[in-house]
Amino acid sequence: MSAALRPYAAAFRARFLLMLQYRVAALAGFATQCWWGAIKIMVYAAFYESAGAAAPISLPNIVTYTWLGQAFLALLPWLADPEVGASIRTGGVGYDRLRPIDAYGYWYARTLGWIAARALPRAVLMLLAAGVVLPLVGLEAWAWQPPAGPEAVALFVPAFVLMILLAVAVLMLANVVVAASLNERGVNAILMPTVVVFSGSLVPLDFFPDAMRPFLHLQPLAGLVDIPFRIYFADLRGAAALQGLALQAGWIVVLVALGRVAMARMMRHLEMQGG
């Protein structure tokens, strides 16, 4: 491993390994997401039965879209990193300032470790349940389908990586606001509905009215769900898929730059009081 990345890899590892220990939380999350996924699919089924012809995405694809969304729900940036709020309140952030590494990179690596560790067990369980068990019990039609083909795989892998990096870039902005306001409730209350709607987690963005779509497909949160998942079943392919990747990458650059500026400002004003 390159020496430059060693501290950040350590920060990621510490958080990732620690979070992986929370098995009960992972099982509970998995159970909730199975239940919620099943309900969403039933709603879609009813909707497609009455208006299927008008739907922009086929039913098997929307089923896969739903299972993907449930599997990677923990990767959505809808909660600021609780460790940031805690370290601000306890003053532990003081020790963060004593580490000879880039402050943004340090938090970024930790938050990445946090969401990755939360998502990994849930995603594996979901893949087993929706991708393996459902076909085996004869519910093939309601199962998580494999990617559309080699091209879809080749495009989905980078889209998936970018989706995670983008999610952490969004969370870093939330983290900075938490640190500046000393409380995560306000941030989370705004973040959660915004992310769920604008990422396409609630419904794919093409289900929204035509007038809204140009905006929806350009805003940063589209890169969290809508773009990578549509690449997965080749609803986005070729040039459109590459455009999607570029959009994800561009927003990562913008959000990271914003986050760095905001964090530097916040840190300058941060005052650690008391003995």
Partner: peptide, 9 residues
């Protein structure tokens, strides 16, 4: 300790 050694390179 291992983590700190990494963080301080």
């Amino acid at each position: 300790f291992d983590l700190l050694a990494d963080i301080y390179r």
